[in-house]
Computed example of a mutant assay.
Amino acid sequence: MIDFIVIVASIEPFWDFTSLNPFVWKGLEFYPKYKKGKLIGFESDYKGLRVMLYYERIEVSNSLHKFYKGNNYSRFSYSELEKTIEIICKKFDIEARFWEIKKMEFGFVIVTPKPAVEYLNFFFQYKGNDFEKMKDKKTEYGRKCYMYAYALKVYAKSLQTKIMDNVVIPDDNLRIEFYYNEKRKLPKAIKTLNDLLDREKFKELFNELYQAFTIVVYKDEVDHSNSTNEERLLFYASLNPDFLRFEEKINKGAVKTIKSKIKQLRERFLKKKFKLWFLKSLKTKYIDLYCS
C-alpha cells in the first residue's frame, strides 16, 4: 500500500533555534542538522522514520510499511495503514487532518507464475517514454518510467531486498509502484493523512495507478500475420528507443505520422495476454489488501 512518504505539519516553536544543543521531545532525542555549514533544523529517528523539526514545522519521512511491520516486503493491509497513521498522530499529538502529504509511493506486490525478474522487459513505454533500467551497481532489478512530477516503477522485490537489506524472499514477488514526487500530482481527493483514512478517497490512488498501467505499452507476444514487410520493419524498428529520436532529427515533419502508424501496428501485432493478466492481478491484490 503506502511505502515511502513525506508529510509535514505546522508546530509552535518551543526551543531556542539559535542554540546548537541537542534536546529531547516526545521521547525522541533531536540533534542539530546542518546544510552547507548552516543550521537548518533538528533531526531524530522514530523506529526508522526520519523526523525533522524546523522552526515552525515538523517533517516525517521514510517507509510507513517498514515502520509498522519492521520490513517493507511483507503484507501491509489497509487496516494496518490506518493503525500506522493513528500511531504517528498520537506520538506527535497532531491530528491526521493537519499532516500535509508532500511525496508518496503507492503500490503493492503481486505474485508471478515465474520469477518476477523474467517480466521486467514486458514494460516498454508509458506516454511515449521508455521504461529505464533500475540498477544497483551491475545488478538490474527493475524498470522505471520517470515523468516530471511522478514515476511508474516495476521491480523484482526479491532482488531489491537482497541488494538493499541482504534478505532473501521468494523470487516471484513483483512490486508495482506509482511514485508521487510532487504534491500537485496527487489525486485531488488526497492532500492529508486524514484523506488516506477515507476509504472512498483512498480508492483514487488505486484508480490512478490502474489507469496509468492500462496505457503502458507492453512487449507481449507478437502476431504479425497478414502484415507487409514494410509494416514489420517499422514495428520492430519502433522497439529500438533510438529509432524515433533519430527520426526526429532528420525527418521531424513526418514523426507525427510515423508515431500514429506505430500505434496502429502495436494494436494489431501485440497480443494482450500479459497485459490482461497483469491488470487483473493488480485489481485482485488491491481488493485483498483494501478489504483487510
Rank of each mutant, 00 (worst) to 15 (best):
I2L: 05
V6I: 15
I7N: 07
I7L: 12
S10R: 14
P13Y: 08
P22F: 05
E29T: 08
F30V: 02
P32V: 01
K33F: 14
Y34K: 09
K35H: 13
G41S: 08
F42D: 03
F42A: 01
D45Y: 08
Y55C: 11
E56F: 11
R57W: 12
I58M: 07
N62W: 12
S63E: 04
F67V: 12
N71L: 06
S79Y: 10
S79W: 13
I87N: 00
K90V: 06
K91Y: 00
K91D: 00
E100K: 15
F106I: 03
V111F: 14
V111W: 09
P113T: 01
A116D: 01
L120P: 03
F122E: 08
F124P: 12
K127S: 11
D130V: 12
K133I: 10
M134S: 03
K135V: 05
E140H: 05
C145I: 06
Y146C: 13
K157V: 04
L159H: 11
M164W: 12
V167E: 00
I169F: 02
D171T: 15
I176F: 06
F178K: 15
Y179R: 15
P187M: 08
I190V: 08
T192K: 07
Y210P: 03
Y218R: 03
V222M: 07
D223Y: 00
N226H: 05
F246E: 14
F246Q: 06
K249M: 13
N251H: 15
S260D: 13
Q264R: 11
R266A: 02
L276D: 10
